[in-house]
Write a protein that binds this DNA or RNA. Structure first.
Length: 571
RNA sequence: GGUCCUAUGGUCAAGCGGUUAAGACACCGCCCUUUCACGGCGGUAACCCGGGUUCGAUUCCCGGUAGGAUCACCA
């Protein structure tokens, strides 16, 4: 078989050679000097989830934390993996860039919002890289390492059926590949002339001696060749070498993921490939491809899958986009989690030593943390909403009230538009949000926008309702008496101690204990304590028994509102 | 089913041959407090099972078990 002739038959229009592309995309300066080049390669399905963010975060940190010896940083680029035309969703690229941007993850290069790619290694849409892939496929054909295959779907199904019946591994390999591998030039030519569709398959073979500089080690176990590489996260991983004649070019001339990945990450000089664990099993294919093509293997970092406990079965399982709303990045935006909190949480499950670092550097910027892949867990982490909330409390405490107020408004405008006009009074909102945050023991009860709004809703008449009943220690008559006297003696200009002194007076006059301890010790001597009296006032003014300091709240509410709420209750 | 990954309290996790087996979240109790929250103190709770190797295994090896991943002209 004359492979050169075959290559020309298959790709008559492809003139450029791999060497041409190597020249077109020379090595990157910063990578040559030790910086990391990473990439995010999403398929444009329009759905961007927590897993994407998780991976993107690793990519971003790796690139931007690395420094070349000449001082320049690494590069993080966006490549759209749209080799499957069925999956493309309009506006998906915008969604990806905006969603990640919300979490402060920015690309240095690649596909961009305005549709104009930036960078010297494009195009960054795989669908536009057809000729590049084909040039490399043509080269493989020329070397007899790939071949056209005319098997139809029915043929494939029949083979699969036979293999399943025989309990053999499915796929095109060994004897199942022979027929297609051994097609003569004439047969191929007439098939093509007849317009039969075909794919290009890799002619799988032993690569153990193909590349002397290889990072791959080969070992034989019971006659099977095993490859092993060092994964950035998992360390050594070993598995049987590939023996499948996988398709590298689909009938439509577009490559499969496997081939596109190898060509792109080589030509774009990616140093670290961060991807989900679900790719681990196809690693042997990629290794064979890298070896055959003579490319240097990137460092693979296979991240663990995010899990959750299934409500029905009680088992751990992969987060699913259909069943788990918290997987969607939109969920966090809707709930109004601050991006910093989500990032902070992600980092705690990403790097086991992060929490420790944070404890030592409570005020440091998150980017100062030295992120390392070897501190990443290789087991699937369970997503813990509780923990996120806890972390969020701390993060929010570090954000100035004014900034938080603006954040709240933004959130409301998008997700709670009927309340947004109320929040436009940013000065009022800021005061509310700042309540109790500057004491020696600051309050930590702000978690996310939705919860915060609920928490502070009584500051707005439109949302004020009496939500709780008065404590059982207090009779209805006493409650009325407490409120009446409170209103009579109320002076908005009282300072906190003057104000509280009046409450003590009412408390004592009505037969309640001024010190809660007294009531606790001698419950028979009192109707209740000052705590119960305070609660009555609290419920009248705030509608609930849980809130920050009453006096401080009243100062913000203003005298008029305080008086009218109480008189309304007295009737 | 084949292959691969993983296995420490309810959850996330330190540990890398000898430890009273850290810490965080959640939970419970007490204290502080005009409520709640915050904070402080304390508490319940863990090395999947069976074989080896070893003076000694949570740690190393081999089996099992369990969970997960993957087996496309999808990524």
């Amino acid at each position: 078989m004359d492979y050169n002739k075959l290559a020309e038959l298959l790709f008559p229009d492809i003139q450029k050679t791999p060497a041409d592309y190597e020249a077109l995309y020379p090595p990157r300066e910063n990578a040559e000097h030790g910086a990391c080049i990473t990439r995010l390669g999403p398929s444009p399905t329009g759905f961007i989830h927590l897993g994407n963010l998780y991976g993107a975060f690793v990519d971003e940190r790796l690139a931007h934390q690395s420094k070349a010896s000449d001082g320049t940083g690494g590069t993080f680029f966006l490549r759209i993996e749209d080799t499957d035309d069925k999956r493309y969703v309009e506006g998906a690229v915008e969604t990806i860039i905006n969603s990640l941007g919300f979490f402060d993850i920015k690309f240095d290069e690649g596909a961009a919002l305005d549709g104009h790619d930036s960078g010297n290694y494009g195009p960054y849409y795989q669908s536009q890289r057809g000729p590049i892939y084909q040039a490399f496929v043509k080269e493989l054909i020329r070397k007899g390492q790939a071949y056209p295959c005319f098997l139809t779907e029915d043929d494939l199904a029949a083979i699969r059926q036979e293999q399943e019946a025989n309990k053999e591994t499915t796929g095109i390999y060994g004897k199942y590949a022979e027929k297609s591998r051994n097609l003569s030039y004439e047969e191929i030519e007439s098939n093509i002339a007849a317009g039969k569709p075909y794919v290009i398959r890799l002619k799988s073979s032993d690569t153990s001696t193909a590349n002397p500089d290889s990072k791959v080690s080969y070992e034989d176990h019971d006659g099977v060749t095993y490859i092993s590489i060092v994964d950035g996260i998992r360390g050594k991983v070993a598995m049987p070498a590939n023996d499948q004649d996988v398709v590298i070019l689909k009938a439509n001339g577009i490559p499969t993921y496997h081939f596109a990945h190898v060509i792109d990450d080589h030509l774009m000089h990616t140093t670290h490939v961060v991807r989900g664990e679900e790719w681990l099993m196809s690693l042997p294919i990629h290794v064979e491809l890298f070896e055959k093509l003579g490319f240097e293997l990137p460092v693979y970092c296979h991240t663990a899958v995010l899990m959750k406990i299934d409500d029905e079965t009680g088992n751990k399982r992969k987060l699913s986009k259909r069943k788990d709303p918290e997987l969607s990045l939109d969920y966090y935006r809707k709930e109004g989690y601050h991006p910093k909190a989500v990032k902070e949480y992600l980092l705690t499950i990403l790097n086991s030593n992060y929490e420790e670092w944070r404890a030592e550097h409570p005020d440091a910027d998150i980017d100062e943390f030295q992120f390392t892949t070897d501190k990443m867990s290789s087991a699937g982490a369970l997503f813990d909403l509780n923990k996120l909330m806890d972390i969020s409390k701390d993060v929010l405490l570090g954000i100035p009230a004014e900034e938080l107020a603006a954040f709240m408004l933004n959130w409301a405008q998008e997700f709670k538009p009927q309340a947004a006009p109320l929040l436009e009074n940013q000065e009022y909102l800021s005061k509310i949000l700042d309540l109790g945050r500057h004491d020696k023991k600051p309050r930590k009860d702000l978690i996310h926008a939705k919860q915060i709004f609920d928490f502070i809703s009584y500051f707005y008449d439109e949302y004020f309702t009496i939500e709780e009943r008065i404590p059982e220690q207090v009779s209805d008559e006493d409650a009325r008496e407490i409120l009446t006297r409170y209103l009579e003696t109320y002076d908005h200009s009282d300072d906190q101690s003057e104000w509280f002194e009046k409450i003590r007076t009412i408390t004592a006059d009505l037969g309640y204990a001024v010190k809660p301890k007294d009531y606790k010790k001698h419950p028979e001597e009192y109707k209740g304590s000052v705590a119960h009296v305070s609660t009555v006032i609290r419920i009248a003014v705030m509608g609930r028994s849980q809130s920050p300091d009453v006096w401080a709240i009243q100062q913000i509410l203003g005298e008029e509102r305080v008086r009218s709420r109480i008189s309304q209750l007295i009737g």
